[in-house]
Amino acid sequence: MPAHDWATAAAAGYRAGRPLTLLFDYDGTLTPIAALPALAVLPPATRDALAGLAALPRAAVGVVSGRSLDSVRELVGLPGLRYAGSGGMHISFGAEEAIDPALAEFDAIADALLTALSSPVKSFPGTWVERKPGCLSVHYRQLTPPRAAGFVEEAREALAELAPDCPPLRVRAVTQALEVALAGAWTKGDAVDRLAGVDALVVFAGDGANDEEAVAAVNARGGLTVGVGPEAPAAVRLRVADQNEFVAGLHRLAASLCGAAVVGRPHPGGVVTPRVIHQGAR
């Protein structure tokens, strides 16, 4: 099997009788990285492929994103899928949700973090801070690489100055941004553990550093991990060159398992509002 042909491996596992759980990152995996997050719109054909796969018996599909849960659910627009937002801290499965208590803890210090970051953001036009439940995304996707390096250094220094007065932070580079959350907050790996299902062949695909824990969780289950592009975690078992190649594989998988019926399949609009049933301990 070619190293990139994750779709063939997933189809073979499903045809052998295993339940199949497909969990994908959104930005950089299902859609290209856009100049602004709001411009990363899911193509209708990709939505149809996801809907077709989710409708299969013994199959589940989920999107695990650094975006807020409400944002990713709205962008995907398929209420029947499983979702995780805020990098795994807010998880939705059916009519139920799991919420990391770190969301509320982080919100209590978010204003101080925003104030600290205001100086580097002002010094580097084209950067901005996106506030989400439980985390911040510090975007620099509009900068050239040399200016991006300078901005990241100043942003990290600004956050480090807060260390004596706030809880420990997890600050890491993701695709063209810094992700800021509380150290010990749930990750995409925690989301995988809650969304994977029992005895399923789990497939996860992602493109950045904040996918590392999800990759580790799926590898530990003996699943398939797919790295999308050059910045994907080193531990992935299969790789594709870019987002276009990944989506081509997704369409091959849908065509293989769903047939022509997936093309133009109607899908429901709107978003289900789940009830919160669990707030796990950190």
Rank of each mutant, 00 (worst) to 15 (best):
R156L: 11
G94L: 06
A160D: 15
E130C: 11
A110K: 07
H139A: 03
P167W: 09
F106H: 02
E161D: 11
D107C: 06
P164F: 09
L162H: 01
Q142E: 15
T175N: 11
V152N: 01
Q142I: 08
E161M: 13
P145M: 06
V174P: 07
A95T: 09
W128T: 11
G87F: 09
E153L: 15
S137C: 11
F124L: 06
A181M: 13
A158Q: 07
E161R: 15
G88E: 01
L113A: 06
P167N: 06
Y140C: 03
E105A: 15
E157P: 04
R82E: 04
F106R: 03
E96A: 15
A183L: 06
S118T: 10
R147D: 14
T127K: 13
R82W: 08
E96I: 04
R170L: 14
P145V: 06
L117Y: 02
G184D: 01
C135I: 02
E97P: 00
V180G: 02
I91P: 10
H90S: 05
D107T: 08
G184W: 00
S92P: 07
A110R: 12
V171M: 08
E161T: 14
A149C: 04
G87V: 11
K132M: 08
L136A: 05
S118Q: 14
H90W: 10
R82C: 12
P146Q: 01
A104M: 12
E157I: 14
V174M: 07
L78C: 00
A185F: 00
T127H: 10
L143E: 00
E105N: 12
S86I: 10
S137I: 13
Q176G: 04
A112W: 04
I91Q: 13
D107H: 10
S119G: 09
R82P: 04
G184F: 02
S119W: 06
I109C: 11
A102R: 10
P101A: 04
I91E: 15
A183I: 03
G134H: 01
A160K: 12
F106V: 02
T127V: 12
T127E: 09
W128R: 13
L114G: 15
A149T: 07
S92M: 08
G88R: 00
P125Y: 09
E96P: 07
T115Q: 14
E97N: 01
C166S: 07
R172C: 14
G85P: 09
V174F: 08
P146C: 02
G80M: 15
Q142T: 13
V129D: 02
L162Q: 00
